[in-house]
Amino acid sequence: MNSRDKILSEIRSARQNPSLSATAFESINTAGEKAADKPPKNLPAMVQQFQKELQIVAGEFYLADTEAKAVDIIANCLKQEGFSRLMTSGTPGAERLAKRLNAAFTILSPPADQERKSYFADIPVALVDVDWAIAETGALVIHTRGAKSTFPYFLPQCLIALVRSSQLLADNQELFDTIEDKDAQNTMMITGPSRTADIEKILILGAHGPRRLLVIFMENE
């Protein structure tokens, strides 16, 4: 008998004894929140909640009603930090905005070759698109298999993410009820800049990932 069969048969014999405190699983499970029971979406309230949650986790929230305004916010951040090079996620929204930036900045898109890792390793800032944002937690959700590269999301010191109003979902339940399993199985959720409190519980931003996260919320598509 191989190990697989050994483990499974061990479990099958363990299953003979039903739990003493068996709860009616089905009844409790289906009593959970259902998407259909929820009130209709109130977008302004969701945006407000998203902003609040993002700020709680030390993320920065900017509202942009035009692309020109978004470009200004990005340029300001780059100037403030003294960055001259910017990498993008290579996705259409980020690419389009990056192109509108002043020629003083060098824009780098993900190269197709094997050297991508070292190519991106020292770039201090990235401009990225995301796939969804979650109002309840302030999280950004990225479908990694649909991305051009995942490196811009976690390698730089500073991450600037573009969120469109149509991408905003109420909570994680809505996310996993909405997206197909095959999309869910390659995703990454980012809630604020990376952090650690491993030394005396003192919170420090910027552990191995970004120390700054700016979200530019685009009201009009």
Partner: peptide, 13 residues
Amino acid sequence: KQTVYVNIIGGAQ
């Protein structure tokens, strides 16, 4: 409320 990263892996990419 949520950790900074939730990484979901469903195969090599």
